[in-house]
Amino acid sequence: MRSKMPGSTQSLQLYDLSLLRQTIDRQEDVQRMVELFITSTPTILANLNEGFQYGDADKIAKNAHQLKPSLDMLGISSLHEKIRRIDNPCKVDQLTDGELRTIVEEINLLLRKVFDQLYEEFGLPQE
């Protein structure tokens, strides 16, 4: 169940770190993994966006495929289905341009919100 973020923000928490915490017991290691997610994901996301920009289904699928396990591990359930709609070139080809655009934009938007929430929860300095 999604919970309210502690602190000032009233927006819904978009991730669930329980699976990550089951895997990694020490808080400082959880923070290290979150930082790794925040630093590595933008590059993958940029590649996915580039694939979309140039109509490259393979590139879109490859980067969606790469994002998938990280999103699952961080419990970002709102992207669970969306990322799976574009994790294979055949699936991408079956989408209309509009559908593909919507999915890619939602992924970008949601991930930006996830980053913000993670920055806040872990007290990380935003670049």
């Binding site: 990550l20 895997t23 990694i24 290691d29 993994m33 790794l36 997610f37 630093t39 590595s40 994901t41 993958i44 790469q66 396990p69 990280s70 591990m73």
Partner: peptide, 13 residues
């Protein structure tokens, strides 16, 4: 594993 996050998580585990 080329995904830095997933690779690190597996290594840790």
């Amino acid at each position: 594993e080329d995904d830095p996050f997933y690779g690190e998580m597996l290594k840790y585990h």
